[in-house]
Every structure is written in C-alpha cells, then in structure tokens.
C-alpha cells in the first residue's frame, strides 16, 4: 500500500492508473457470496439469461469496490471520503476492464481533491463513471 499521498504532490490533471484488470467469473461469484447477493445474474450465464440478460454480469457495487482499490493504491488507505457512481452499462466478466481516474479539482482549505473515475471495457466503452473526494495529507 502506498503511503498517504501529500496534497502538495498532486496536481489537477494527474491520472490514476490506468490499471488493467481481468475480471474472472469465479471472482464475481466470490464477491456475490461475500456480499450476500447470490442472485442468478451474478452466478452463471444460464441464470442471467433467464432474467433477460446477455449473460452473467458483475454487481454494480463490485465496480465501486474496484475503483476504491484504485484510489487507495494511489492515495493510501482510508483516504476516500465520498464516492458517487453511475452504472451506465452492464459489466460482463471474463473480460479485461480498465480502471481509470484523474484529478479534476484541488481544495486547498480541506486538503482534499476531487476525482473523475471510470471503468472502460476492452472496446473502450465507459461502463461505469463516477466522482470521488479524497482526503490527502
């Protein structure tokens, strides 16, 4: 884990990642079990198709978890104060996701920064977009 990032070491436009992450079906199932949301859509293709989906999908909450991990790898543990996300499209497993972020604003008084965050598919589509407030040292 990176030490807590200093406010003065960050500039608007700085990027987080990108981090390429292969999202395996078994990992999605593990997350669904750990989150107590073992709905068919999160467990296998057959169950998801019965719900009218193209195949098994990852929970939206899992995307927030992956983006939080990206932030903490950059800024340090316990730095995320707020996160907002919009789930624009389903996240399908057995594909590589690209986790991305950028600093959009610095708040000198609070020693905090605002981030834009997003998850791209391997075709470059933004599946999840969001913002976060991160407290720096």
């Amino acid at each position: 884990m990176a030490p807590r990032l200093g406010f003065d070491d960050v500039f608007e436009g700085d990027e987080l990642g990108p981090e390429d992450w292969f999202l395996a079906k078994e990992q999605v199932r593990d997350y669904a079990r750990a989150n107590d949301i073992c709905f068919p859509r999160f467990m296998d293709d057959e169950g998801a198709r019965a719900e009218g989906l193209p195949g098994m999908i990852a929970p939206g909450n899992m995307s927030m978890g992956l983006l939080t991990r990206l932030i903490e790898a950059w800024a340090g543990r316990g730095t995320v104060r707020r996160m907002g996300t919009t789930f624009r499209s389903v996240v399908l497993p057995d594909r590589t996701l690209r986790l991305c972020g950028a600093v959009t604003q610095k708040d000198e008084a609070a020693r905090a920064v605002e981030l834009d965050l997003w998850i791209e598919s391997d075709e470059g589509d933004r599946l999840v977009v969001g913002t976060a407030t991160v407290q720096l040292a």
Binding site: G60, N61, M64, G78, V80, R81, R82, M83, G84, T85, T86, F87, G130
Partner: peptide, 13 residues
C-alpha cells in the same frame, strides 16, 4: 427497475 448508481459518504471503518 435497474440499479442506476450509488452515492456513498464514508464514515468510521
């Protein structure tokens, strides 16, 4: 209905 997104304010661990 569909889950369109979330806003989270984090507190104590």
């Amino acid at each position: 209905s569909f889950d369109a997104g979330k806003d989270i304010e984090f507190g104590v661990p």
